[in-house]
Nucleic acid binder design. Structure first.
Length: 964
DNA sequence: GTAGTCTGGATTTTT
DNA sequence: TCCAGACTAC
């Protein structure tokens, strides 16, 4: 498509390059287009080169897109822009710090320098582990902080607080705080008491004044929960208010010990990480800020004539200040939309854009307090609103506006936040929007039902083609006619389902799989917090050490009651089938084979199971994890809540499923917003985290306290913090903004769904929800088809007897068969073979592996590696044989089974014949139309030997004979 | 009508 | 850690 012509305000933004601009760029208003054109305009009309223009974004993807679009608008090519500062905040600052900041730690009283080789930690798991290690040495080194340390259940939670303080620009030096940056730690007393004045104002009841909200929040005040110095209920209650004197006493409590503790932990953590040559992202930005403040010569060298910051609603205070310091003149342009600020939990500050003018003045004054750093004028700020929306139908834009004022609780009062703000204006000419809300007792099925209703329906028409485009200068009526011609019935790919929580998305995906509806999840999953991962962990523990925790979970999953489970675990009297399964698992060499066997037995064919196997088997390129290492790895990631991106693509035409956060910046013809359930969206409260918290009004506070004042030394909840927090009215602005973001992704149609218990947001919509009895049809997508060798999946508690193929082989023969090369050698060859067959970048490291590589190179059909195979036997009682096939080669007219053996001789060949016969019969039932060939491939001599399979009955006899 | 008390259940994740 | 909702008490 050709580049559109900028609208009036876009043009104004493009041409306004001198001075300070705040651009309110609403959803779908062509922000990236305008910014990149502005960049080009600066190059075209001034002497500036790309080096002079700093353009910071938030994600690597956004930075890349900016670069590419700038290339389209200018004479520069991608290569010439390679070194240009078009970058994420983090990447840009890291580069500066590495180049100019070696000695910056001196400013904070730290002797270690920043080496070129410093390691920037990105994985939260590692960050947490390193912090944990630091805290244990800190505790040993600081007996004076012992009482503070007692309030922690897990001192590692402190690292979140340190990240938050860094984001605020609070930075410790050896003896104090950098440039009085500790001010926020003391809180904003005035603002707090203003808030309290509101919250503590009595209500007006039918029969006189009623208790204030604050008084209501402390109605159950019980002094006995707290340390002995806590005020009594009588002292707190001053009906119909909370006693003002008690609030002041709480606010003004002595926080010396708390501040000293946080200072010491924070400062020593910076020192410790530098000593060990690593930095976290947050500390890195803090040091970059220190450098820009403290080294005028560095700033002179790096500051830019033009500074542009995209997604400004997602910046924190520290980044705001860094941006100001990186500007050499007042040619500053920030672009964002406060209504789309949804990353508060990442310590971003929506006030940066809402109160931009105030903050710019205040931050400049702070930065200039001791000497002039900002020498350009900051008083004159121009606001440019972009309000022409190129995405959504008019009725969707109008509908979405209400989201910002729907109360999240019964008692919440929301002012109209859009007062005085210009509404977005649709540029679409045809508004065929369907906006509907539904609820049903089974929301997952409801969503599937609605998806099937929408797909192929002309009532939900969307753009299906770019043609025809009317001539430029066509009348509105002509444009509308052309637009109407571009509309047609939607397909699955036109639909996106958004959810508030990942858990809901995961559940919905499973149901969609069941029904065969094509749904592709896009985003991260807490891979280690899934039922699959917990099951794998349990069996790993059992196989490794017969661990009680493992058995407890396995038995529970098999349906045993918890008291029964305990008895079984105590007596170690595990059910026979489980005991045998343990032995079978213990005999599996590869972690991949182990996990697949577990999932196979339980019938887990989900994308989650696949992702888990892939993730755990591809962690290290050179070596694979042992079972013990796998256990540790899963445990660490479970504790850290690690997420892993998973791929689920059931084809080209599929519904996109993602969390609202994941959908930011994207657009879809049809949006279904699910999960509008009580306590899910909006979300209330927080899980218990760090016992030291920060809040702009309260400053630094501790929620627990160690006291020896009572009869026994004890850790109590800390009454002053408890009181202050409970009288602070909670705010749900960010939840409303999430709702807004979700709605404004929709181009044509918008549907809402909820389960039995709709949330306040669902109730608050200006349309009523229709009750539906969902009846989704079964579709044709069969994700299980990806695992073709699966037979029926027995419930684990009633599982028929199951044997491993190895159980029916005479192991006395091959026990001595490793020829001195060790079982590890065999495992390594198998791992190589699997990776090589999957086209992973592995190189053969010995002759055996080279033989395997040559063999695989010669195969031209489909390759399936490490595939579990199950063979139900004909006799009674029911018995199933299980194994894992090394490689299956499928062509249109034949199927070949290949099993690698690293044996130096053929002594065990008869046993292998039995093993491959089992696989033969499995595949014969899967591919009845094709001849099956079973081959043992002896890797040492590169010799394939085709086996003559034994009959099913013979296998049956053998199995019963060997095992009765 | 108004207040108090008790129970059950719950996250999002760019760098 | 918070909320909603059911319940009781006055």
């Amino acid at each position: 498509m050709s580049e559109p012509t900028p609208n009036e305000n876009q043009q104004r933004l493009i041409e306004s390059i001198d001075g300070i601009y705040r651009v309110d760029a609403g959803a779908g208003t062509g922000k990236t287009f305008a910014i990149t054109r502005r960049y080009a305009h600066i190059l075209d009309t001034t002497d500036a080169t790309p080096e002079d223009i700093l353009l910071v974004t938030f994600t690597r993807n956004a930075a890349r897109e900016m670069r590419e679009r700038i290339v389209q608008h200018t004479d520069y090519d991608l290569r010439e822009l390679q070194g240009a500062p078009i970058s994420t905040f983090h990447a840009y600052c890291f580069r500066l710090l590495c180049r100019y900041g070696h000695t910056v730690p001196e400013t904070l009283g730290i002797d270690d320098q920043i080496p070129d080789s410093i390691d920037l930690i990105e994985e939260p798991v590692r960050e947490r582990q390193l912090f944990q290690r630091f805290m244990s040495t800190f505790a040993d080194d600081h007996p004076e902080h012992a009482d503070m340390l007692r309030i922690f259940r897990d001192p590692a939670t402190l690292h979140t607080l340190i990240g938050e303080l860094a984001a605020k620009g609070v930075i410790p030096t050896r003896d104090g705080w950098f440039r009085s940056s500790d001010e926020p730690l003391h809180g904003d007393r005035e603002a707090f008491f203003e808030t309290v004045a509101d919250a503590n104002a009595p209500g007006e009841g039918a029969s006189g004044p009623t208790n204030s909200d604050a008084r209501g929040a402390v109605s159950g005040w019980d002094a006995s929960e707290y340390a002995p110095d806590a005020p009594s209920k009588r002292e707190v209650h001053d009906d119909p208010r909370v006693d003002r004197g008690v609030i002041e006493r709480a606010y003004d409590e002595d926080r010396t010990a708390l501040l000293a503790f946080v200072h010491d932990v924070y400062h020593e953590y910076i020192a410790c990480s530098l000593r060990n040559d690593y930095l976290t992202q947050g500390l890195m930005l803090a040091l970059a800020f220190v450098m820009l403040c403290d080294r005028p010569q560095v700033r002179d060298q790096v500051a830019h004539e033009y500074v542009m910051v995209d997604e400004f609603q997602d910046t924190n205070e520290l980044q705001f200040k860094i941006a100001v310091l990186l500007a050499s003149t007042n040619n500053i342009c920030v672009v964002g939309d406060w209504k789309q600020s949804i990353y508060g939990f990442q310590h971003t500050s929506v006030e940066n854009i809402i109160a931009f003018d105030d903050r710019l003045g205040r931050f400049t004054r702070e930065l200039n307090a001791d000497r002039t750093r900002i020498d350009y004028p900051v008083e004159s700020i121009t606001t440019i609103p972009l309000y022409e929306n190129y995405r959504s139908a008019a009725s969707i834009l109008e509908f979405a506006e209400q989201s910002l004022s729907i109360p999240a609780t019964y008692s919440e009062d929301v002012d109209d936040p859009l007062a005085g703000e210009r509404s977005l204006a649709a540029t679409n000419h045809v508004d065929n929007a369907q906006i509907d809300a539904y609820h049903a007792s089974n929301e997952h099925e409801l969503l599937l039902d609605r998806i099937q209703l929408v797909v192929d329906s002309d009532d939900y028409a969307v753009e299906v083609t770019d043609e025809p485009q009317p001539d430029p200068g066509a009348t509105a009526a002509q444009q509308a006619a052309a637009e109407r011609e571009r509309l047609g019935a939607p397909t699955y790919g036109d639909i996106a389902v958004f959810t508030r929580t990942r858990a809901f998305a995961r559940e919905f995906l499973a149901v969609a799989d069941e029904y065969g509806v094509p749904v592709a999840y896009d985003g991260g999953v807490e891979l280690f917090d899934t039922p699959e991962a917990k099951l794998a962990l349990a069996w790993l523990r059992i196989a490794e050490s017969n661990a009680r925790r493992g058995w407890a979970l396995v038995l529970e999953r098999a349906g045993y009651a918890s008291d029964r489970t305990e008895t079984i675990v105590d007596a170690e009297a595990y059910p026979d089938a489980m005991g045998r399964f343990r032995e079978e698992l213990a005999a599996i060499d590869t972690l991949g084979g182990f996990l697949r066997r577990v999932f196979d037995r339980y019938g887990h064919t989900s994308a989650t199971a696949d992702a888990l196997v892939d993730h755990l088997t591809s962690l290290h390129e050179t070596s694979t994890l042992t079972r013990g290492e796998a256990i540790q790895y899963i445990e660490a990631n479970l504790a850290a809540g690690t997420t892993v991106e998973i791929e689920t693509s059931p084809g080209d035409d599929a519904v996109t499923l993602q969390t609202i956060h994941g959908a930011k910046g994207l657009e879809y013809p049809i949006v279904m917003l699910g999960n509008l359930n009580d306590r899910a969206f909006p979300q209330y409260g927080q899980p218990p985290a760090c016992p030291i918290t920060y809040d702009d009004e309260l400053g630094l506070r501790q929620t627990r306290v160690y006291s020896e004042a009572g009869t026994h030394p004890h850790v109590y909840p800390h009454w002053p913090t408890k009181l202050l927090q409970s009288i602070q009215p909670p705010t749900y602005d960010e939840e409303r903004r999430l709702l807004y973001v979700a709605m404004t992704r929709a181009k044509r149609h918008l549907l809402f769904t909820a389960g039995d218990d709709p949330s306040r947001f669902m109730d608050g919509l200006s349309i009523d929800a229709t009750t539906v009895e969902p009846a989704p049809e079964h579709g044709t997508v069969d994700r299980a088809a990806a695992t073709p060798f699966e037979t029926t999946i027995p419930d684990s508690s009633t599982v028929p007897r199951r044997l491993s193929v190895h159980d029916i082989m005479d192991d006395s023969v091959y026990d001595e068969r490793d020829g001195g090369r060790g079982t590890d050698f065999g495992t390594a060859v198998h791992d190589f073979a699997e990776a090589y067959a999957l086209d992973e970048p592995v190189e053969p490291s010995n002759d055996d592996e080279r033989a395997v590589a040559t063999l695989i190179d010669d195969l031209d059909g489909e390759l399936i590696s490490e595939e579990p195979a199950l063979l139900p036997l004909p006799g009674e009682p029911q018995l199933t044989l299980a194994g894992v096939i090394d490689l299956v080669h499928v062509t249109d007219d034949a199927v070949e089974i290949i099993d690698y053996k690293t044996d130096p001789d053929r002594l065990a060949h008869d046993e292998y014949r039995t093993q491959l016969s089992v696989y033969y019969h499995v595949l014969a039932s899967v591919y009845p139309d094709r001849p099956i060939q079973a081959t043992v491939f002896y890797t040492q001599t590169a010799t394939p030997i085709t086996v003559d399979p034994v009959s099913l009955d013979a296998i049956d006899r053998l199995s019963r004979g060997r095992h009765e």
